[in-house]
């Protein structure tokens, strides 16, 4: 029987797997995609250092390989059943059934589907993209960046809180990382398009992490990004494929209208479908946000209501890479304590 079965081979799963392996436990990773890495594979750079996400990924993949940790790719967990003796049985699309003493759920998040905010016109107007689309574009960008409709870009606007803090989307919570992502991407656009104007439409700028506020200041001071306090109410397309934006400039208390060549929607994080599947198959408790509910938010944030089933990373809430890695490390220790006590 395996000691720890980790579901999800993103950074949280890989970090925890390495630590648990080093603590002497038999560890196995199940990953539903054909590669390790999760969402980070589609990300260009990380805030606040602006280093390449691929560097972090390569580090973890190498660490996993060096330790010879077994990884099952293309393996989607369909159910988790707790046995009478306290162990777990997992079913996947594969023939083999997995038996394990503990489960660590590092299933991550799903990106908010921006099509649901119909008034922003994602996938209706050519030049509306999401922050995730922009990261993919930046990963491979060569030469002059042009808008999806092929126009040169003279102005770009970023919209904060798309699908977050929004009752209409069913998401009351803040996604934590979009604010700083918006600042990071705004700087990037100014670097790539020195002639372009860049605007960020925000409600509150939540620069909560180390180095975030400094980056905000850099965006203002060095890159002249213009921050407008107001939430976009609607987007429409003009005859030349530009986008007409409407918002209130709340600080001057007047409605505002502007036209831009590219609109980037900073999409938030939502609970992964996996959380719902788990909840169904093993009575896992979820918060009203639909993310996994930790047993105790402060003291036992890696435990769940199911004994022996642990969690880490964005399965519990939107988190930065920094917080995810720390939470995963903590999860490894939490699992280790449990295994020592129950062996």
């Amino acid at each position: 029987m395996i000691d720890v079965l980790i579901i999800g081979g993103g950074i949280a799963g890989m970090e925890a797997a390495c630590t648990l392996h080093d603590l002497g436990f038999e560890t196995l990773i199940l990953e539903k995609e054909k590669q390790l890495g999760g969402h980070l594979r589609n990300w260009d750079t990380l805030f606040p250092t602006k280093r390449k996400a691929s560097e972090v990924l390569e580090h973890y993949v190498k660490e996993i390989q060096q330790r010879g940790i077994t990884v099952y790719l293309n393996t989607d967990v369909t159910s988790v059943k707790k046995q009478e003796d306290g162990t777990f049985e997992l079913n996947t699309g594969r023939e083999v059934q997995f038996k394990t003493k503990t489960v660590l759920m590092t299933t991550g998040y799903a990106l908010f589907n921006a099509e649901r905010k119909e008034e922003y016109g994602y996938k209706i107007y050519d030049n509306v993209i999401t922050s995730a689309d922009l990261e993919k574009i930046l990963q491979t960008a060569k030469g002059e960046l042009r808008s999806p409709s092929g126009n040169s870009i003279q102005s770009v606007a970023f919209v904060h809180c798309v699908g977050s803090r929004d009752e209409k989307s069913g998401n009351h919570y803040c996604s934590n990382v979009c604010c700083v992502t918006g600042v990071k991407q705004a700087i990037k656009m100014r670097q790539l398009l020195p002639e372009a104007q860049v605007f960020n439409f925000y409600m509150d700028l939540r620069m909560y992490g180390s180095g975030f506020e400094e980056m905000y200041r850099e965006a203002q001071e060095q890159w002249h990004v213009q921050f407008i306090r107001g939430r976009l109410s609607e987007v429409a397309e003009t005859i030349d494929k530009r986008l007409q934006l409407k918002a209130e400039d709340t600080l001057s208390a007047r409605p505002l209208r502007m036209h831009v060549d590219l609109l980037v929607l900073l999409v938030g994080m939502e609970s992964n479908k996996a959380a719902a599947d788990f909840a169904q198959s093993c009575n896992l408790a979820c918060a009203p946000s639909r993310f996994v509910q930790p047993k105790d938010f402060h003291i036992e944030s890696n435990k769940t209501n199911v004994e022996g089933l642990f969690t880490a990373g964005t399965a519990i809430a939107p988190l930065s890479v920094f917080d995810t890695v720390n939470h995963a490390k903590a999860a490894a220790l939490s699992v280790s304590e449990y295994l020592k006590k129950n062996n």
Binding site: L232, K246, T250
Partner: peptide, 23 residues
Amino acid sequence: CMSCGSCTATCSAGNLTDFNIRR
């Protein structure tokens, strides 16, 4: 209310008068 201004941005009256429902 968190003063985001979506209401004023879309307000028919606010487009033509100084009415501002957020304020």
